[in-house]
Design a protein around this nucleic acid. Sequence first.
DNA 1: TTGAAAGCGCTAACAC
DNA 2: GTGTTAGCGCTTTCAA
Lengths: 341, 341
Amino acid sequence: MATIVDVAKRAGVSLSTASDILNGKLKGTAATAGRVRQAVLDLGYRPNLLARRLRTPKSGAIGLVVPFRRPIFSSAVIADYLAGIQAEQERADLNLVLASRRYEKPGEIYGADLFESRSVDGLIVIATRESYGRDVDTDVRGLRALGCPLVWMHFFEGREPVDRVTRAGADAWHEVLEHLAERGHKRVGALTVGIGLKAGGRPNVAHYAKRFESFGMCTKPEWLGAGEAFDGGAFGAAMEILRRPADERPTALVCEGDELAVAALQAALGMSIKVPGELALASVTNTSIGATAAVPITTHGAPGSMLGRMALKRLAELIEDPAQPPREVAVPGQLLVRAST
Amino acid sequence: MATIVDVAKRAGVSLSTASDILNGKLKGTAATAGRVRQAVLDLGYRPNLLARRLRTPKSGAIGLVVPFRRPIFSSAVIADYLAGIQAEQERADLNLVLASRRYEKPGEIYGADLFESRSVDGLIVIATRESYGRDVDTDVRGLRALGCPLVWMHFFEGREPVDRVTRAGADAWHEVLEHLAERGHKRVGALTVGIGLKAGGRPNVAHYAKRFESFGMCTKPEWLGAGEAFDGGAFGAAMEILRRPADERPTALVCEGDELAVAALQAALGMSIKVPGELALASVTNTSIGATAAVPITTHGAPGSMLGRMALKRLAELIEDPAQPPREVAVPGQLLVRAST
DNA sequence: TTGAAAGCGCTAACAC
DNA sequence: GTGTTAGCGCTTTCAA
């Protein structure tokens, strides 16, 4: 394989001239620059990034830690983030290294091995509810002690300050409910994944009733369901809610995310319940699959891919200047009214 | 950051001794070995993989190219492969680098940049029908010319010999149909993603009729549907098939993969059609989501995660010894009878 | 077993 | 603008 020495030799210039010209530090005369570039072409020279990075100690890659016990890639939410990360990564010319480990042994810190071995310059951790109960503060502190630039996404229940990317505003529920109220809905149910719910537990009616009250809406225990999209749980929960006669079921269902809304949509369509005619469906957290559903879902907030982009952007900043204090990047979003309401 | 020089100094041994002991090339006396290991602990030394790999020119990473226009990660099939790749990667202690590029510009070869810049030692390409129409032979030849170890997965329509991982036997259809025949089914429909179907085109009835015939089964144009799982197309197609009265619809539906079968299942359940009582559902290609469906799906073949494992294993072999002639690794599988039939 | 020294391919000083 | 030289941190001869 050709090295930069070969290129320099062939172009009849010195090593450093070739290097500088190829890295844009030197324009050279049109003639020499041309000769160098021609030599690159002739020899099929490609810089050895390993060597380059040994010298300028950056790996040019960022690590991705996704603590997921089931296949990482089967969640639409994560898929959205990744799509954004990938898009931005392409722009920033950074490689993406997937953590292979689970970091579940005692004392193991998310992604620390990747950073310590200089395989990556920084980390994005996309924590899911699989990390529920983990002492993530230890991870954050451990990574900071190593000087590892870190951006945290999604689920975070620690106390340690850390760079995060979130959706702006805590009022997604507010805006969605307001929208449903405007559409005249009074009887509203909800579908949630039920983080923190005890196994087989039910959503807290009082909690929802209170939320709905100020919009002149009511709910009932049997209008509240919990389940995951990936294993059909949410679909079943929606069936439970909807299988009552029309006058005993809600006229609108607020779902924690588009995945759940799509599950509810399929349940409704299957039972020949018209959406939005007989049932309005809204999601509180935007995911790309809501847009391509049989009936596009009204949802709220910036797309997940945007959060992914911002995360990578912020990480690039931190790699550039690691001294910055932790900051939360809140990505603004808004109500997206679509056909389902 | 501590280097191996620091470790050697602290342990009071020479550089090469430290290196050899840490790499297991030298056992040393128990005392020296212990001092070296203690020094590593004291200093928190971690080898700089960049430097190591500059010397022993292996990156220790493999590249993953997934030519997917929509988010890579939204396919259950791909998710399965990746789960297997990840599992094996963990064992093999290889990093996984995700290709950031799309390789869609003319002349671009899948993953070539990653290999040429020594970012990875080899490539796994998971081609999907998004690469339909691409001249993949050019990719295969180009990569071979570079000496890049390559394992191809999933969709391949080239002529060039290449290392591949596939499911063994072309008789998944045969075994599934045989099973349905044993169960007494005569009227059978099918659900396909319709690769190569013209937009809006319909599956070829004659094709299916011929296949079914030898098992004493019949089909009809209106029992055949095509659509994707991710955008609800398959769900809609299943609804179309199933909304007829019981005596005008098939008693069994063979689906191209578990994703489609799950879509059909949801359609059926939604219409209060009992599975398997009134409708048997079988898939021809095993995907993990079939096992966790509301009614677990009868399916065929090795799990996708197994294919992923084998791909990484084979790639590791090729990296070890790149001179081997291309070989197809066919992973044996069998009929998995579950509740849906 | 150990130590000294070479060099992987590159970039960055610092002379010319 | 150009050429020379010194390393980045590691592994690997090769001689002691």
